[in-house]
Amino acid sequence: MQTEIIIAGFGGQGVLFAGQLLSYAAMDAGKEVTWIPSYGPEMRGGTANCTVVISDEEIGSPLVRHPQAVIAMNLPSLDKYEPLVKSGGVLIVNASMVNRQPTRTDIHWVMVPGNEIAEELGDRRMTNMVMLGALLANLPILPLEALIQTLEAHLPARHHRLLPLNVEALKRGAEYLAVKA
């Protein structure tokens, strides 16, 4: 069993971190996992994406043409990755950063106002956590609780004061979909 997730946005949105958190959680759950980044030379802006492959067996290709799921954090990412999601797959869109809805009818897509939810919580930098929570609510690869435990286990001690807000952001992202349904 293998799942592939691509998280894409611009540099500074925490795209790579979100992928790493997912990867740590998969590893802690005893899975095989590969995280591979792709980004331009810019420190902010530009493009940033990572591919996370989670599997029960030794992973082959670290990159996939048609992922099972995509988190699109901004419009260029939506434009690039909407056509590539596997049929029957999941597309989580940051509604705050796009001006259109996905047009495909053969995938399960959800619009989540990530920036607004994060700002409500007090920090727009939590947008990536909101989107990650929304992903897990729609793609049952790992329970949300697993991600929370992973954050506690792997986040360096000096960042632990940020834990409560990150956990809240994850939960709010996951709950947003529940409300919609």
Partner: peptide, 9 residues
């Protein structure tokens, strides 16, 4: 470069 950049357990 991909093996150098990727993260795995």
């Amino acid at each position: 470069g991909s093996l150098g950049q990727m993260m795995e357990p």
